[in-house]
């Protein structure tokens, strides 16, 4: 397994001042894959990234990048990875080109390859026009792109992106996503952390959902969503009287009533058909409907769904580590 996996952790543990942040974390990321660590704040995403990028030492367990043990040989691991963290690692007092040139020098690229690589990246990241300007004049999206460009100077085989699009406007986020997708075309392995299910959905080949420092679910985005009840159709009634009437009807066992908003929602794999059925039902009973919405599964739903499964998952992970 180790030969095809570019990122492997086994039984990873870390506590801060007695508070466990990672408890027995096991992940496997295949070469050329985009792997998303999905979880709320405090789930242990950044801690995992920090251990894998040699910034932190784990209390127990092993972690390796491209077959290199990051705890025992951090120097070799650093040559195989790059980190783009949550905070911009770009000097505002240097221009885009100067930032790249400095990092190329630090990556020991050599003058000629540094120049070629810098030009390549400026073009790839659509920063040619702004290359001579101080980074302090860049927009948030440009700064992220420069940041990512810098991290790719030495063409590392494993790239870590810690919340790459947090705080970006939708246009910059889409731009960032397409850049990340292009990377894997060259065989780069990417581990990204995100709080957004949509981001994982758009980018990731596989996802690990993290909660309280353990992986509570893994799989492709489609598999994860299949584990949920999927989309729901929600009807909102015009009056309290209509809602009271609706409460007496049979919308199926999985229906959820929301008294405050006078709404009912039911799970649906075919939203159009379900909507027709629901409207017909309401019509037959003369209940006035004021709004129809399609509810997509959110990160909240994933967690609500997964909290019930945490116990059993933890046990199976522990067994796996013991075996």
């Amino acid at each position: 397994m180790a030969s095809t996996s570019m990122i492997v952790t086994r039984g990873l543990r870390k506590s801060f001042r007695g508070t466990p942040v990672l408890e027995n974390l096991n992940i496997d990321v295949a070469r050329g894959e985009i792997f998303a660590l999905l979880g709320p704040n405090g789930a242990g995403k950044t801690t995992t990234v920090n251990i894998l990028t040699t910034l932190l030492k784990p209390d127990a367990g092993t972690a390796s990048i491209a077959g290199i043990d990051v705890v025992h040989d951090p120097a070799a691991a650093r040559a195989a990875l790059s980190l783009t963290g949550q905070f911009a690692a770009v000097d505002p007092f240097q221009s885009g080109a100067e930032n790249l040139a400095m990092m190329a020098r630090l990556a020991h690229l050599g003058r000629k390859s540094a120049r070629i690589r810098t030009a390549e990246l400026l073009e790839q990241f659509d920063l040619e026009g702004a290359a001579g300007r101080l980074a302090s004049t860049y927009s948030g999206g440009m700064r992220r792109r420069l940041d990512l460009a810098i991290s790719l100077l030495a063409a590392p085989p494993v790239v870590f992106l810690d919340e790459p699009t947090t705080g970006l406007d939708p246009r910059s986020r889409n731009q960032m996503w397409s850049v990340v997708r292009e990377l894997t075309a060259g065989g780069t392995t990417i581990l990204l952390t995100t709080q957004y299910l949509e981001e994982a959905d758009q980018l990731a080949d596989s996802v690990a959902v993290l909660n309280h420092g353990t992986v509570v679910a893994t799989g492709s985005p489609a598999e994860l969503k299949a584990g949920l009840n999927g989309d729901r159709v929600e009807l909102t009634f015009e009056t309290d009287v209509a809602y009271a009437g609706a409460r007496r009807l049979d919308f199926g066992a999985a229906a959820v009533f929301d008294d405050e908003r006078s709404a009912v929602s039911v799970p649906s794999s075919a939203p159009v058909a379900t909507t027709r059925e629901l409207l017909a039902l309401a019509d037959r009973h003369g209940l006035a409907v004021s709004n129809i919405s399609l509810l997509k599964p959110t990160l909240d739903d994933v967690f609500l769904h997964l909290t019930g499964a945490i116990g059993s998952d933890t046990v199976s992970n522990a067994e796996e580590a013991a075996a």
Binding site: A154, A155, E182
Partner: peptide
């Protein structure tokens, strides 16, 4: 993109680093 197998060299060049 250049090939992904081209690692940064983990060379010890403290003076170059400090100069930068």
């Amino acid at each position: 993109m250049t090939t992904a197998t081209q690692f940064a060299r983990p060379t010890n060049r403290p003076f170059l680093d400090i100069g930068a």
